[in-house]
Amino acid sequence: MRLPPFTYNRPQDLDEALELLNAYGKDCKILAGGTDLLVRMKQGLVAPMNLISLKALSELAEIRETATDLKIGAAAKLSDILAYQPVQGRWPGLFESIKAIGAPSIQHFSGTIGGNLCQDNRCQFYNQSRSFRRARQTCNKAGGSTCFAWKGGSDKCHSVCQSDTAPILIAMGAKVVIKSRQETRAIPLEELYSSIGEHPLTLGDNEMLTEILVPVRAPGDGSAFEKLAYRSAIDYAVVSAGAFVQTDGNQMLKASLVIGAVARGPLTIATIEKTLEDRPVGDEQAIDEAAKEAMNAAEAFMANNMTQPVEYRTQMVSVITKRALKLATKRALSNKEVSEAK
């Protein structure tokens, strides 16, 4: 299938890219790997007049470590991140989340981390061909005024954020660097998401994501990503969870949990930090409480935006939460540097 015409730009450096972005503004889309964008273009969900390709921007493809962060260029390919040796050992949650995306062979060699974080929200009523959508009224996300995913309709769009890397990166406290021609800002990744289904990102028209900063691993911390899908590949999450904990070997010092694939943005379960703090490591009851909190928080957002039933997905939030927290805790305990720190 062919696509409607547009102008293709391949800037040779970041400044040129930002310049173009500034000039085109609304009428333009950034093209990273294109594995999300092209599908939406083919379905007639977006029809940008201009594309700015990041392919020539080697500065955006870099992956390196500093004293404080793992720095990943926004246009780094998923396969390159997986191949970057330290990731698997030190940021296992990130490694798992990338492995879980689409199909290892194909999305990974084109898909980028920036594209993964900036992919549009999804909904079973929206991410469909024009003819499929024509059988119904236009929904909020497509510029209309109804929502099929919300029982009884809604004036809000209840699409879901399906990024697999966002939950774990947020849980680990990652920051992102956002640039426009005028300005550079670094914000917590969480703030990239607007929680508005119609336009889920807080990026301005002239802004783009250039870098992801993941804090280096500290003694006694551990991360894990869990994804429930019906197949082993090419499958978006039914529910996912990114967990990050820090322990002193006996007690939980810190914990954060972000649920993916349930809400309009990655869903941070802020309360669990308190719930788990100072609880003994391996306290099943604490984990149960946290899981319940996650489930309750998620329930409010659950919409019929994917083919799996809402009730089931809600229940799974609890199960996946427990698994992610336990695995993260296990990793925290085996984090060699724990003993050294003590």
Binding site: Y8, R10, S53, S79, I106
Partner: peptide, 12 residues
């Protein structure tokens, strides 16, 4: 590298 040519612009 193996890529899906249906999601890859010829110009690239």
């Amino acid at each position: 590298l193996a890529i899906n040519s249906c999601l890859y612009f010829a110009v690239e």
